[in-house]
Design a protein around this nucleic acid. Structure first.
Lengths: 169, 169
DNA sequence: TCTAACGTTAAAGGTAACTTCAAGGTCAAG
DNA sequence: CTTGACCTTGAAGTTACCTTTAACGTTAGA
């Protein structure tokens, strides 16, 4: 199948598919005599795997090292290892998010709970002091959380562009 | 106080402080006759606020629009609005992470639960089919989740560099 | 035969939040 | 008067994941 067909099947853009090939992520591709790429049906499967893995928080780099050339022969140990680590990353992230959320909720309450006899400036000072009281000792999260975040991000941002820049025509 | 002193007080790098000034985030800065920046003690407070807000998932852009020039006079409505939205973002993200985690856990189990009489290739096929069965209809997360992710990310990645590139000396 | 749709490439652009670099100027101490 | 610590600037580099652009070749159908 040609690249357009593969794009239709997988819902990816042709540019993305070519990009994956360029970075060595998608190797099941041949060329016809005219230079056109041609893919086996399996390619759609592989692209599906890539997208799924990405959604689970893997970087394309991680995916590349994990994806075997032959879908029948995975490196089970490496795979399990990566999966386990990724789960731990998610858990750390969940903890961090819970903290952030709690912090924000506290802040909201704090702002609303202004004593009736206090003016805005004084209230601002009070809230401000409370906000900055947070010892910030709780930021020690592993960089793997970061990877996960990074990954999850881009993929979604494509889905709906609210901050699209308008280029002058 | 000079920039180095401010950097020491806040734990930020001087480049970061200059950067914040460049993008219009930190305006409380004057110049001495020699061109050196000079800051009021309040600057440390503002930088503290910026870092805190960033940790809570706000982009520098968001922070800029929310930060008043006078710390005594906040736009309470805009602030509450932003806080509420950010909390919602976090909740959406938590849901997504929970899903991702569940997905990964299912996968791990699935890999390990290979029937004794099944060979690796067949197992691979079985697992693969299961993985790709996920309808992927559950990706509809708002782009705000994305922002949050993006923000949370960078900040952390600075904290510990595991993938630091070694530059030839 | 023309046209529209499809394919090709390399290179550059975009995002967010910075850092790094080159090429200096300033200042206090010894 | 030199050394070293500190300050300045604008521009370019970094990361991950793509998209866009320009300039061009191929093919199927009317």
């Amino acid at each position: 199948m040609k690249i357009g067909e593969l794009a239709r099947q997988t819902g990816l853009t042709t540019s993305k598919i070519r990009f994956y090939e360029r970075i060595g992520l998608l190797k099941t591709v041949d060329r016809r005599s005219n230079g056109y790429r041609t893919y086996p049906p399996q390619a759609a499967l592989i692209l599906g795997l890539i997208t799924t893995a990405q959604r689970a928080g893997f970087t394309l780099d991680e995916i590349r090292t994990l994806l075997p050339s032959d879908l029948q022969h995975w490196d089970r140990d490496a795979l399990m290892d990566a999966l386990t680590r990724k789960i731990a990353d998610i858990e750390a992230l969940q903890a961090r998010l819970a903290e952030s959320k709690a912090h924000l909720l506290r802040l909201v309450e704090d702002i609303q709970a202004r004593p009736d006899d206090m003016d805005c400036a004084a209230n601002a000072h009070r809230v401000l002091t409370n906000v900055l009281m947070t010892p910030s000792e709780n930021l020690d999260v592993t960089p793997d959380d970061v990877r996960l975040l990074d990954r999850t991000d881009r993929r979604l941002s494509v889905s709906r562009g609210r901050s699209k820049k308008v280029v002058s025509p």
